[in-house]
Simulated assay, not measured.
Amino acid sequence: MLEARLNEAAILKRLLEAIKELVADANFECNEEGINLQAMDNSHVALVSVKLDATGFKRYRCDRPMPLGVNLNSLTKVLKCAKDDDVVIIKAADDADILSLTYEARNSDRIAEYDMKLMDIDADTLGIPDTDYDARVTMPSSEFSRIVRDLSQLGESVRIEVSKEGVRFVSEGEAANGNILLKQSEITTKAGSSSTKKEEDADEEEENEEDGEDEGGDGKKKAKKAKKEKVKKETGEDVSMNGEEEDDEEEFKADGEDGEEEQEEDSSSKKRKKAPAKATGKATKKAKKSKDGDDDGDLPDGVRIELNQHVNLTFSLKYLVNFSKSSSLSNVVQLMMSNDVPLLVSYEFGQGHIRYYLAPKIGDD
């Protein structure tokens, strides 16, 4: 018995849209750890591997390992009947030939139920060996999508070269050539140092004010008194009434050093809050990034390159354009390469991951 409850139908819809053109029929292998899919395209050039962790579901139960053979185009049509924010409940009995999908609307009592016929698909699960890649490029998935889409207008292949200079995408067509270089970004470091510098400046300014308070004495008190009177005028209080001004002055003097320190602390705390404002905005963006699935939590517009050895390989753009459709699942993509080894394109998201393996082109093949 399988029962899986997913908070948002959008996850499954985006997942199916990303792989349906590569693979027609596939087995979803279900076990207590989650749901896995592994399939090759018809030409055996590309392999797709999907994992949905059991922890990514609101509720998950799988009594025993079971395959769910589905036609991906048919499943895509059934999923289109759900709204993006609908709760999806997937059910299948042991040895059943029917897959049940129930959509529960969040803001209404609408419940839609669909039954889909399962298929017997005889497919061998391929063992994917662990590989130590010579180059790893982490970049925004939107940037990767744009590059492969643009270069696919020029030619059928792209040469990806990773070196100390950066990662270069080169496509040569009959009418035009394209060459795009992405250098490693240092945005994270700069943002951090800028924030630290602003905080240090704020602290230094606060210290200077405290020193000035000790040296300034009466002048400081007069300035604060004038400021206080100005505030009262703005709020509509009558400062010119007999005796009130003197009372205020006496009250100010009675507070003594404590009153001054309190106002200084308020002033300095405001300055502290204002100083790192820009850095805070970026930090929020960074946190969102981490939540969406980037384990390292880099800024989405940054490019990071880890290089052990120079890599230079050529791939089919048609497949890369298909892979890039997974950018709707994650803001970050990782390209992992070694010479004479299939390229690994990996997207991590909250419920699991989707990985593509693409064999490089050799010579004119």
Rank of each mutant, 00 (worst) to 15 (best):
G155P: 10
D211A: 10
E237D: 12
E249R: 05
R168I: 03
T235M: 10
G216I: 04
K225H: 06
E249I: 07
T196A: 14
E143G: 08
A202L: 00
E172C: 01
K220Y: 10
K227I: 11
N242P: 11
R136H: 09
A254C: 06
E237M: 07
A202T: 01
A223H: 03
K227D: 12
R146F: 01
E206Q: 05
E186A: 14
M139P: 06
N177K: 05
E244K: 10
G219T: 08
I187T: 14
A175I: 10
D134R: 00
L181C: 03
V170N: 01
D211G: 00
S157H: 15
V158A: 11
A135G: 03
D218L: 05
A191D: 13
D218N: 01
E156K: 13
E172V: 05
M139W: 11
E207T: 12
V162K: 04
D150N: 08
E199K: 06
V239I: 13
K220G: 04
E229S: 03
G192M: 15
K164I: 05
M241L: 08
G217K: 07
K227W: 09
F252C: 01
D214I: 15
R146P: 00
T235I: 08
E199Q: 08
L151H: 04
Q184N: 07
D248V: 02
V239M: 13
V167M: 03
E206R: 12
G212Q: 12
K253R: 11
K225R: 09
I187L: 14
E186W: 13
A254L: 12
I180Q: 04
G216D: 12
N208W: 13
A226K: 09
E246H: 07
A223G: 05
E246A: 12
T138N: 09
S240Q: 08
G212W: 14
I187G: 09
K230A: 11
Y133N: 02
E206D: 12
Q184M: 15
D203Y: 14
K221G: 00
E249S: 03
V167L: 09
E206P: 01
E207I: 15
E215P: 00
E200W: 10
R159H: 01
K221R: 04
K190S: 11
E156H: 10
E172Y: 01
E200I: 15
E237P: 02
E234H: 01
D134F: 00
A254K: 14
E213V: 12
E213Q: 09
T131S: 02
D130H: 09
T189V: 14
E172F: 00
E143R: 12
F252S: 04
V158P: 10
N208E: 15
E246D: 12
I147N: 05
T131P: 02
K222C: 01
A223R: 10
P140A: 15
E244A: 11
E250R: 12
S240Y: 06
S163W: 06
G256A: 05
D150S: 09
E161N: 08
T196I: 14
D130C: 10
S145C: 00
S193T: 15
V170P: 00
T131A: 04
V231L: 02
E251Y: 03
V231H: 02
E245H: 09
D150Q: 12
S163P: 01
D248L: 09
L151Q: 07
